[in-house]
Nucleic acid binder design. Structure first.
Length: 460
RNA sequence: GGUGCGGUAGCCAAGUGGUAAGGCCGAGCUCUGCAAAAGCUCUAUCCGGCGGUUCGAUUCCGCCCCGCACCUCCA
């Protein structure tokens, strides 16, 4: 069953297929900048891309997909972070890379086959810049920086569908302060390939392209260089969040195609942003969540994954704490269904085919979840457990990870619970009820069973 | 100003030219000292508004209202 996915370049839904003779599907996903913990908006993109990766493997075979996702470990933000903390750049980026990996693991995202970093590919970036200089697609400025000459690339703006007029005088620009390098550039839409060292960069610098100053690469060039190195000049799919469409991906196309002379990517996919409570996430609104923020509230990472997949990746998704509660409950239902399946081995192998069918149809994750529960609601009889497992794998749900980690109850709460249990055994229900109210006030719920009880924190 | 996306039940969210998936919440019942869990059942005469096309539109077209995003380094 072919995978069909929206293509930002043609603005149409097209089939994904490897274009190269070796049959390996070349997949590049723009990764995070490692200067702080990623927020759930970032993770929407990475979880969606993880589902794409899984579908590709199911379709073409595990050995026939090469998934590359970069780590941006040198840019204004990382440098500022290191400078403010008085720590070496590599130290800071190592810390946040580790955090990113831990979060991805918790969200059950498969590791990309290659995770290149910008600082490990300075040579490759410089080489590309040299070629662009040589071909007159780039020029040096007096301070030793290098810029890409946008006017030298006819197709510029094709992906974002921005016309030259809009690129130059978008009114959003009108009120904004001009970038510091505005005077240096031949044209306002030119962008930096190489940034000459400045005092605030501290010890962050590398030898530059031919006759340019020492400094560091511009942001866009890293993806062009790493994509070229690990996947070749022409790749099958390039993805990222919607904000990357312009200018990042537009610039990547310009650099790569001017350098390599061939089409950069055959297919582009951009997932839409996450909103929280109907608004764009921002620190000032207090609605910016990291994974840790949510697990601290008692939610499981798997519920976060579920909630992130509950909306169509091509549409903005409104994330709320209520949606996390819904996700947690839904996963619990799946866990019980799975347990039931184990005692009810059926043979209907096609059982959950509808789930993958929905995913193959432009990554319709909400429809896939709908199909999933429609089948689950029919009961476990006759269903082949392998079919269920395949659906879980495609969505990346690890049901063993469903339950939120149980917090340890404080000693006072444990004592109250013990007292209540004793009162209950003595059939002193008045006292037992009073103690239950005390436990509730303390933020805990006591769950009775025939032979004992357990304690759970109340969710808020 | 330019470029896009969207407005479907209390919340989240699919979808279709022929009459509304799914999840959550809620309600009722069974069970149960209480609470929870579990099981069963129910929950949009209607898809932002107004026109148009059509035998028929939530689904196509036009206009309007509202929300969101991008427009040079935010996934």
């Amino acid at each position: 069953m072919p995978i069909r996915l929206h293509d930002s370049m043609t603005r149409s839904v097209r089939e994904l297929k490897p274009a190269h003779d070796d049959g390996v599907f070349r997949f590049y996903n723009c990764g995070p900048t490692v200067y702080a913990p990623a927020h759930i908006g970032n993770f929407r993109t990475f979880v969606v891309n993880d589902v794409i990766r899984r579908l590709l493997e199911l379709e073409f075979g595990p050995g026939k997909v090469k998934h590359v996702r970069n780590l941006t470990d040198v840019d204004d933000k990382t440098i500022k972070r290191a400078r403010d903390a008085g720590r070496p750049l590599a130290d800071v980026t190592r810390q946040w890379t580790a955090k990113f990996h831990a979060d991805c693991l918790a969200l059950n995202c498969l590791r990309p086959h290659v995770e290149p970093t910008a600082t490990d590919h300075i040579r490759e970036q410089v080489d590309m810049i040299d070629v662009l200089l040589c071909k007159r697609h780039a020029y040096r400025t007096p301070d030793g920086s290098v810029y890409f000459r946008v006017s030298s690339f006819q197709e510029y703006g094709e992906l974002s569908h921005l016309q030259e007029r809009e690129l130059r005088l978008g009114s959003a620009l009108a009120g904004k302060p001009q970038p510091a390098d505005a005077d240096e550039k031949e044209d306002g839409s030119d962008f930096a390939l190489w940034k000459a060292w400045k005092p605030e960069d501290g010890d962050v610098k590398w030898p530059g392209p031919d006759s340019a100053a020492a400094g560091r690469p511009g942001w866009h060039i890293e993806c062009s260089a790493m994509s070229k190195k690990h996947l070749g000049d022409n790749i099958d799919l390039h993805t990222g969040g919607e904000d990357l469409l312009f200018p990042h991906h537009e610039n990547e196309i310009a650099q790569s195609e001017c350098c390599n002379g061939v089409t950069f990517a055959n297919h582009w996919y951009h997932s839409k942003h996450l909103l929280v409570d109907g608004k764009k996430m921002s620190k000032s609104l207090g609605n910016l969540y990291t994974l840790d923020d949510l697990t601290a509230k008692g939610f499981s990472p798997m519920a976060v994954r579920y909630a992130l997949l509950a909306g169509h990746p091509s549409k903005q998704l409104n994330f709320t704490l209520d949606s996390l509660h819904a996700a947690e409950s839904a996963l619990e239902t799946l866990r019980k269904y799975k347990a039931e399946l184990m005692f009810n081995l059926g043979k209907d192998a096609a059982g959950f085919a509808a789930v993958q069918q929905a995913l193959h149809d432009d990554l319709n994750t909400p429809a896939a979840l709908g199909a999933l529960f429609s089948i689950v609601n029919r009961g476990a009889k006759n269903v082949d457990p392998n079919s269920f497992e395949a659906a879980m794998w495609a969505l990346g749900f690890d049901l063993a990870k469903t339950n939120a980690p149980k917090s340890e109850a404080p000693a006072g709460v444990i004592a109250l619970a013990a007292k209540r249990w004793a009162a209950k055994q003595a059939k002193d229900f008045t006292a037992a009820d009073a103690l239950r109210r005390e436990l509730t006030a303390a933020g805990w719920s006591m769950l009775d069973r025939k032979d004992g009880y357990s304690l759970e924190p109340l969710k808020h």
